[in-house]
């Protein structure tokens, strides 16, 4: 296959993945709207009404499973069916998504990893979100997250294709390093896991609010979301997984590569500064949980602050800062009118 054929395949695969994600989202929406007719089982509901401090929690990850409802086995069967269809479609979409990444890498000459610019980076990042969700779904009981994750990935993919698209081009010299694989892969994995953790924290806050305001119903989405204690713990686990990976990406591989390419292992480049800020905020989150006993709401706020800095760093800095050497988002590198001659290119 020629390079341009690979590139066309990649673009078609992205479109196809978007379509399948959309179908998966529809299936999950059908599942969840059908669930609205089924009240959460009395026993399970009792546990969800208890705040973070009470004796709590339904069985692990079991709360989102469709409960036997008054509508009879047909209805239950349909909920189950659409849940399965949604998940299967998500898996299919994830595979097509993987094909688009592979083709993107094959389209470049010489072949390379598919994260050389912002478009490709977002394509990889959303794929990792899907992958983490699919892999951890059973382990962490994340099936309740399905519509959110699929919607999130779908929206980001659309943003990516509409605003960030860039044709395949070879890597700039500075990016041409094995560290591109190690550094970026770890950063993307951490970003994906932090994002999933952030979704848990948002839901925690929403659910907590609806409980304290006494508005919780027995049929809404929030009543199907796991109890506050479980949300809090799942969020913690995702963050606890992502944090060491982020440390590896930002404070080990980043500096090693920076030292090789730019002669300084830490340049206080805006991207580095914000990666550091993100690291500190998440460190504060973990610290607060383990020593100050912060759980629940305060911890969720800290986690969301972390998510905000993470995403600002990922997207914002590329557009707001012109001094960043990480300015791969700019379609044309900004003209350098500098006393120091033009640099070797940005990573």
């Amino acid at each position: 296959m020629s390079d341009s054929a690979w590139e066309a395949l990649s673009n078609q695969a992205v479109a196809a993945a978007g379509l399948v994600y959309f179908l998966a989202l529809l299936a999950h929406l059908v599942e969840w709207s059908a669930l609205r007719k089924v009240p959460v089982e009395a026993g399970a509901r009792e546990t969800t009404t208890v705040g973070a401090g009470g004796p709590a929690a339904p069985a692990y990850g079991a709360s989102a499973e469709p409960a036997a409802g008054s509508e009879g086995p047909d209805h239950e069967h349909r909920i189950d069916l659409f849940g399965r269809i949604g998940f299967s479609l998500t898996v299919v979409a994830g595979l097509v998504h993987a094909v688009s990444l592979l083709a993107r890498g094959m389209a470049a000459d010489p072949n390379r990893v598919p994260w050389g610019n912002m478009y490709e980076f977002t394509l990889s990042g959303t794929f990792v979100v899907t992958l983490l969700y699919v892999v951890m779904r059973r382990r962490l009981g994340l099936s309740w997250m399905a519509p959110l994750v699929v919607g999130f990935v779908l929206v980001l993919l659309m943003v990516d294709v509409i605003w960030l698209y860039a044709p395949v081009s070879p890597l700039t010299e500075a990016l041409n390093s094995p560290w591109l694989v190690i550094h970026v892969v770890s950063a993307v994995i951490a970003t994906g896991a932090f994002s999933l953790g952030g979704i848990c924290s948002v839901l925690y806050l929403l659910k907590e609010r609806s409980i304290t305001k006494g508005r919780e119903s027995s049929t809404g989405y929030l009543s199907r979301v796991p109890s506050l204690a479980v949300l809090d713990r799942v969020s913690y686990r995702l963050h606890a997984f992502a944090f060491p990976v982020w440390t590896f990406a930002v404070l080990i591989t980043g500096p090693i590569w920076a030292h090789q390419a730019w002669s300084n292992y830490w340049n206080w480049d805006p991207k580095e500064v914000w990666a550091f800020i993100t690291w500190v905020v998440y460190a504060a989150y973990l610290h607060a949980r383990s020593t100050a006993g912060w759980k629940g709401r305060n911890a969720a706020y800290l986690a969301l602050l972390g998510t905000a800095t993470l995403w600002f760093n990922f997207i914002g800095i590329n557009f707001f800062s012109t001094t960043s050497q990480h300015s791969y988002a700019a379609p044309e590198p900004a003209p350098v009118v500098a006393e120091a001659p033009v640099l070797a290119g940005g990573a």
């Binding site: 089982e41 009395a42 026993g43 009792e46 973070a52 929690a57 339904p58 069985a59 079991a62």
Partner: peptide, 9 residues
């Protein structure tokens, strides 16, 4: 109900 595990926070 179905909560068979005794977990408290």
């Amino acid at each position: 109900g179905p909560a068979t595990t005794e977990e408290k926070t």
